[in-house]
């Protein structure tokens, strides 16, 4: 065996090793989110939404043929993947059960994969400092608590209890109208004196993420209530 033969063999072996290395590395990198880098922004709503989007995308787009499953396992995994895809599609049309399923999945993803806990959940919504809560935060908390007790009658119950369906004058308007103002929400929130458990807080965050990602934004929860309907209009400002 000449020197050139040995060099050639080493070269071929080296190239083969490199190809295998990069092949395995690319597969590893492609598979699921690796470590989550924790910084100040990690547990903000925006970052959480990004994470959920990415993870749900990965779960629904994973190539099952690559995992090397048995025939029966493959059929079952396909069925579960199809189930999730169906739920993700169905929830955009307002299906309550699909919405519930997607929300449960988001809940588990945040609690078990993203590491949301009692300490960091307030970075998404400042539950511990009421003065920092926006009117929407407060309304989300209130509707969650009422929904726990009254189910789909939550909104009606809240309106009835605080007589929010009265004709009233608001600043800058000449005619009275039916309206629920920010001040009223703040007042109700103060009166209710709500104490939340971690699971409640996470459920509220999950709802917020869901309504921004898949749901109907701020009217998402209201839409599900036992009400005649929701109507909206666009005001074009030129």
């Amino acid at each position: 065996m000449t020197i050139s033969n040995i060099i050639l063999i080493l070269l071929i072996v080296g190239v083969a090793a490199l190809i295998i290395y990069f092949h395995i590395k690319s597969k590893k990198d492609a598979e699921i989110v690796t470590n989550i880098d924790v910084d100040d922004q990690t547990y903000t709503l925006q970052q959480m939404i990004e994470f959920i989007k990415r993870r749900l995308d990965e779960i629904t787009k994973i190539n099952l043929y690559d995992i090397g499953l048995s025939e029966e396992e493959l059929v079952r995994r396909k069925s579960k993947k199809y189930e999730l895809k169906k739920a993700l599609k169905g929830c955009t049309y307002g299906d309550v059960n699909d919405k519930k399923y997607v929300k449960e999945l988001i809940y588990d993803l945040l609690a078990k994969e993203y590491g949301v806990n009692e300490m960091n959940i307030s970075k998404a919504i400042p539950f511990d400092i009421p003065s920092l809560l926006t009117a929407q935060d407060k309304f989300d908390i209130l509707i969650y608590i009422y929904k726990k007790e009254f189910g789909y009658e939550a909104l009606s119950e809240m309106i009835r209890k605080y007589q929010l369906d009265e004709f009233k004058y608001i600043q800058g308007e000449t005619k009275p109208c039916y309206v629920i103002t920010e001040d009223e929400i703040n007042e109700i929130y103060e009166k209710e004196n709500i104490e939340l458990l971690f699971t409640d807080k996470l459920n509220i965050v999950v709802q917020r993420i869901y309504q921004q990602y898949k749901g109907y934004s701020s009217i998402d929860e209201i839409r599900d209530m036992n009400i005649d309907g929701v109507s909206g209009r666009c005001i074009w400002i030129t």
Binding site: I32, I36, E83, N97, Y101, K103, D108, K112, E113
Partner: peptide, 30 residues
Amino acid sequence: TRNKMIENNGLEGLERVIRSNRITPETIKD
């Protein structure tokens, strides 16, 4: 190097389906 992933099998996965009222006898086998 993967983080802890959510469990999609067993009772943990199935419970999610139950919580969302989507369970059928055939679902259990999955």
